[in-house]
């Protein structure tokens, strides 16, 4: 057996319209905010690969 694929179920408790509005509102970000996000993403890629491990004992 090699790899497999789990199909997604599309249900949500926050209304779809609310999610759609939230995502659409991102397009209204001021240019300075969008530029700040780009700079932040660039900076994070230059940071170390931050590995989180929970429950490992070895």
């Amino acid at each position: 057996m090699s790899s497999s694929q789990i199909n997604l179920v599309k249900t949500e408790a926050m209304p779809c319209t609310a999610l759609a509005s939230l995502v659409a509102a991102v397009a209204e970000d001021p240019k300075a905010v969008a530029a700040g996000v780009k700079a932040s993403v660039r900076r994070s890629q230059e940071d170390d690969n931050n590995c989180m491990m929970g429950g490992w004992t070895s």
């Binding site: 999610l19 759609a20 939230l22 995502v23 397009a27």
Partner: peptide, 22 residues
């Protein structure tokens, strides 16, 4: 979940210069 959606949308725009819809 809504915050996760908007954060993800901002990340997508930062990488692709395109704004996704939900």
């Amino acid at each position: 979940i809504g915050h996760a959606y908007e954060n993800t949308a901002r990340l997508i725009h930062a990488v692709s210069d395109e704004y996704p819809d939900a």
